[in-house]
Design a protein around this nucleic acid. Structure first.
Length: 282
DNA sequence: ATCATTGGGAAGTCGA
DNA sequence: CTCGACTTCCCAATGA
């Protein structure tokens, strides 16, 4: 992203971002470095050339069609990122283009043996999509903390709903409800900050980035992630959220913080060199 | 007081 | 038929 792009971004960010503008800049800078993420698919290289100027279209997803019976036929990470351009939300209501012919219908998408795309996977995907930067951004990608942009969070939700082929329009409220269910399993937890959530480090790792933690299979509601002996239980390198990989311990950390009043997330999250304690801003 | 956001219960849907 | 993973609806609490 060039400087002009940055400037445009700045103009489009609304008040809740301004409150932590430095944060946003940091995230944008991170995104500018993220373009190499998908070098294998050449997504970001080709996006520009492939994209027609559909200024108000979103949520057109291109899937790689895999032959039936060739092993696990769908993994979310195998799906090519969707083609869409950033809608100019300031000029009017969001209009979603009809899915292109290759857009898989629900039945196709969930065909034999295909794993359903999970919300957290979708969010992770969106976080690496430069065109979604106006809807969702990393607050601190290394610790898996991300936040929704108040102004455009509904766009992301709509995209999610379209991707799932829901009958009704997905809203942020409904998406957030699903997100809250993750707090039970610990896949994503709520950060005590407006519109901000955090991936579990193990999930983050599994999704292809983030800190190195003990890997395990995906936790289930019945088997919440337990990582006793994990470095995160004793050593909060990025103290705020890694405090523990186990959800319960995360929460206990949050609980601690909440007693200390509002804390400076930016400070806490951007300082990873040395262990720090929670820093209240007031 | 208003609005946005958060949180959770409960029932329903859908695919595996 | 069961189960997981949402989805949908609703309502209450909280904070700006």
């Amino acid at each position: 992203m060039d400087f002009d792009g940055l400037k445009r971004m700045e103009g489009s960010l609304d008040s809740d971002i301004n409150q932590d503008f430095q944060d946003a800049i940091d995230v944008i800078q991170r995104h500018s470095n993220i373009l190499y993420y998908d070098t294998e698919n050449k997504y970001y290289e080709t996006l520009e050339s492939q994209q027609p100027p559909l200024a108000h279209s979103i949520a057109c997803f291109q899937f790689t069609t895999l032959p039936e019976g060739s092993g696990p036929t769908y993994e979310w990470s195998d799906a090519s990122p969707w083609n869409h351009s950033t809608p100019d939300v300031s000029t009017g209501p969001l209009i979603c283009a009809e899915p292109p012919p290759f857009y898989p219908s629900l039945s196709q998408r969930s065909g034999k043996g295909r794993k359903k795309l999970r919300l957290y996977e979708y969010l992770y995907e969106a976080l690496h999509d430069a065109n979604m930067v106006d809807s969702i951004q990393w607050t601190d990608s290394s610790s898996g903390v991300f936040h929704f942009i108040s102004k455009n969070k509904e766009k992301l939700a709509e995209c999610w709903g379209q991707r799932k082929g829901n009958r009704k329009t997905m809203t942020y409220q409904k998406m957030a409800r699903a997100l809250r269910n993750y707090s039970r399993t610990g896949e994503i937890v709520k950060v005590r900050r407006k519109l901000t959530y955090q991936f579990n480090p193990a999930i983050l790792q599994r999704l292809g980035g983030g800190p190195t933690v003990g890997l395990g299979s995906r936790p289930s509601a019945r088997e919440p992630m337990q990582q006793s002996g994990s470095p995160y239980t004793s050593m909060p390198t990025t103290p705020a959220y890694y405090g523990a990989a186990a959800p319960n311990e995360w929460h206990s950390w949050y609980g601690q913080c909440s007693y200390q009043g509002e804390y400076d997330l930016t400070t806490v999250l951007t300082a990873s060199e040395s262990p720090k304690t929670c820093i209240p801003t007031q």
